[in-house]
């Protein structure tokens, strides 16, 4: 199945954000949620409980204009499912951000036999702000993991500031150098003035300021999805949630 979704958020000129495009094809169905009067706009992807499926080619494109503030969530975890015969599935997410984007989906679960890649390419203009969360779960409860990859490229002002590939499943390494057998692995990228500036680490997680931007990557491994979420979100996402009017980006269209 091929499907595409588009969400375009723009400043409404009164300190809020309006959605000029909310378009989707099953199983990618974006819906506006949250309070109309909040300073930010919120979209949930509500579609397709069972997906992506082997053979799917899904695309999501998000644009956030200057001074606009968009939060994107999903209503439930995505289950990456195998097909018969086995085929590769892809989800390609592209985002162009002038203002502020919080991309906070539920995790992707690698169902036994799946072969899925999520490829994300985020272009931030200088001064744009970003929260970008990726969570990979190795199978449903007590199930061997399928192959799941997340390939992420984040650019800031045209310069790539983060490029990483995470992978779980039978084709990926799960040893003591990579994930140490953890069933849940993930990262949260924070770009902007909220980004932590000091590195910290626990035995299963670290907050790491990046080299070439006001940004930090929080990485963690955990035994389950809930533990991973706690490790990644910590105070960072709460800070954002409590302050939805957090200063949006102020760069101009380029």
């Amino acid at each position: 199945m091929r499907a595409e979704a588009r969400v375009v958020a723009e400043a409404d000129g009164r300190g809020g954000t309006r959605l000029s495009t909310v378009y989707g094809e099953p199983p990618l169905l974006p819906r506006r949620t949250g309070h109309r009067h909040a300073g930010h706009a919120e979209v949930h992807l509500v579609g397709g409980a069972a997906g992506p499926l082997g053979g799917d080619e899904l695309r999501i494109h998000v644009e956030v204009g200057p001074d606009a503030h968009l939060v994107v969530r999903t209503v439930a975890a995505s289950l990456a499912q195998p097909s018969h015969p086995p085929r590769h599935s892809t989800l390609t997410i592209t985002a162009t951000v002038h203002g502020t984007l919080a991309w906070l989906p539920e995790p992707t679960v690698a169902v036994t036999g799946c072969d899925h890649t999520t490829r994300s390419i985020v272009d931030l203009c200088d001064g744009a702000e970003l929260l970008w969360r990726e969570e990979l779960i190795a199978g449903r409860h007590d199930e061997p993991s399928g192959d799941l990859r997340a390939a992420t490229t984040v650019r800031c002002g045209g310069r790539t500031i983060l490029r990483h590939d995470l992978a779980i499943g039978p084709s990926a390494d799960a040893g003591p150098a990579t994930v140490g057998g953890a069933r849940a692995v993930g990262t949260l990228l924070v770009v902007g003035p909220h980004a932590p500036t000091r590195p910290t680490a626990t035995s299963t997680g670290a907050t790491m300021p990046l080299a070439n931007a006001p940004a930090a990557l929080i990485s963690a491994t955990a035994s389950d999805a809930a533990g991973l979420r706690r490790a990644l979100d910590g105070d960072t996402v709460n800070t954002w949630a409590a302050d939805p009017s957090a200063k949006p980006g102020n760069c101009r269209k380029n």
């Binding site: 390939a151 490229t153 790539t160 490029r163 990483h164 590939d165 995470l166 992978a167 390494d173 003591p176 150098a177 990579t178 994930v179 140490g180 692995v185 990262t187 590195p199 910290t200 680490a201 626990t202 035995s203 299963t204 997680g205 670290a206 790491m208 990485s219 963690a220 491994t221």
Partner: peptide, 22 residues
């Protein structure tokens, strides 16, 4: 292109390095 070169990440190498540094 540089963005297309390998980028396999090892989360525990990162975490271990940050702990080690302290």
């Amino acid at each position: 292109p540089v963005d297309d070169l390998p980028a396999g990440s090892a989360i525990l190498l990162d975490i271990g390095a940050e702990q080690h540094a302290t």
